Simulated assay, not measured.
Amino acid sequence: MNRKVKTHIVIDGNAFYEIDEECMRQKMENEQKKIQKKQRELQKKRPELEDRQENEKSKE
């Protein structure tokens, strides 16, 4: 299989970097999935936390 590799070069002072765009895209997708997973977990916990707060307020 002949795959066209897309890269770009970054020069920072004396440092030289070659960035693989496909790798960076996959990394960004994985980070986005992690963020979405955490958001779903927090949304599930939110009603539990609100109930706990209501119970504490009613005890006062």
Rank of each mutant, 00 (worst) to 15 (best):
Q43Y: 13
E50K: 14
E48M: 15
G13R: 08
P47T: 00
S58D: 05
E56P: 03
R3D: 05
N55W: 08
N30Q: 13
Y17Q: 02
K34Y: 07
E50R: 12
D12Y: 07
M24I: 04
E60S: 10
K38T: 11
K44Y: 07
K6C: 12
K59G: 00
R52L: 15
D51V: 00
N30T: 06
K33W: 03
Q32H: 10
R46P: 00
Q36P: 00
H8W: 09
K27H: 13
Q43H: 08
R40T: 14
C23L: 09
E22C: 00
R3P: 02
E18M: 10
K44F: 05
K27L: 12
G13N: 09
I19F: 06
K57S: 07
M1I: 07
V10F: 03
Q32F: 09
E60L: 14
E60V: 14
K37C: 01
K59Y: 13
A15W: 13
I9L: 02
L42Y: 12
I11R: 10
E60H: 01
F16P: 01
V5D: 12
E18W: 01
L42K: 05
Y17P: 01
I9A: 07
K4A: 13
R40C: 00
D12G: 05
K33T: 03
N30Y: 04
I11Y: 03
R3Q: 13
D51H: 07
E60C: 02
R40V: 14
R3K: 14
N30C: 02
N55P: 04
N2R: 15
K38F: 07
E41S: 06
Q39W: 03
E29N: 06
D12R: 15
P47Q: 07
N30D: 06
E41R: 13
E31D: 09
K44T: 11
E18P: 03
I35W: 05
N30H: 10
E56N: 10
K44M: 11
K27I: 07
K38E: 15
M1R: 06
Y17D: 03
K37T: 06
E48P: 02
K45G: 09
H8Y: 15
S58P: 01
M28E: 12
Q39C: 07
L42H: 09
P47C: 01
M24T: 05
